[in-house]
Amino acid sequence: MSSSVLPKPQMRGLLARRLGIHIVGAFIVALGVAASCKFGVADRRKKAYADFYRNYDFMKDFEEMRKAGIFQSAK
């Protein structure tokens, strides 16, 4: 029978090494999520608001609401 010696597991510095890897991974994931939120949600929303208010006639909207009786003080 040959006895083979098992290598000792690395215990010293294990947490620090794993933590460094996970911090870098978390930073990369956070940057990806922030970029996708900015380009996927915020920029589309800004464009939709700009498109809406480009052709929005607030006086026409006010007159329609006034005729519908929404405003009590404006007759």
Score class of each variant (00 low, 15 high):
51 D>T: 07
56 Y>K: 04
13 G>Y: 05
62 F>Y: 12
72 Q>M: 06
5 V>M: 06
72 Q>T: 05
60 K>P: 09
42 A>L: 10
44 R>I: 11
32 G>K: 05
18 R>N: 09
37 C>V: 00
73 S>M: 01
3 S>H: 07
50 A>F: 06
70 I>R: 04
55 N>D: 15
3 S>G: 06
35 A>F: 03
4 S>C: 10
18 R>E: 14
45 R>L: 08
75 K>A: 06
61 D>G: 02
69 G>L: 02
30 A>Y: 11
10 Q>R: 13
33 V>G: 09
67 K>Q: 15
17 R>E: 14
59 M>I: 12
19 L>H: 08
60 K>A: 15
53 Y>E: 11
25 G>P: 01
4 S>G: 07
32 G>L: 01
19 L>R: 07
15 L>A: 10
40 G>H: 02
25 G>Y: 00
16 A>H: 02
26 A>F: 10
48 A>C: 11
39 F>W: 01
25 G>Q: 09
71 F>N: 06
22 H>I: 00
41 V>T: 14
28 I>L: 08
52 F>Q: 15
22 H>N: 06
57 D>F: 03
56 Y>S: 06
11 M>H: 03
15 L>S: 13
34 A>D: 01
9 P>Y: 07
7 P>I: 00
31 L>E: 03
43 D>E: 03
71 F>W: 08
4 S>V: 13
29 V>Q: 05
60 K>C: 02
59 M>Y: 11
12 R>A: 10
2 S>Y: 05
25 G>V: 01
48 A>H: 02
55 N>L: 02
67 K>W: 12
10 Q>Y: 13
19 L>D: 00
47 K>T: 13
45 R>K: 12
8 K>I: 14
14 L>F: 13
65 M>E: 15
4 S>A: 07
37 C>S: 10
23 I>L: 15
18 R>C: 08
35 A>H: 11
25 G>W: 02
42 A>S: 11
62 F>Q: 08
7 P>M: 05
20 G>D: 06
16 A>P: 13
56 Y>T: 12
11 M>C: 05
45 R>D: 00
33 V>W: 09
13 G>K: 00
66 R>W: 03
65 M>W: 09
7 P>H: 03
28 I>Q: 12
21 I>S: 05
44 R>Y: 10
67 K>D: 13
68 A>G: 10
45 R>M: 03
10 Q>S: 09
10 Q>F: 06
74 A>Q: 15
2 S>E: 00
26 A>K: 10
29 V>G: 04
57 D>I: 02
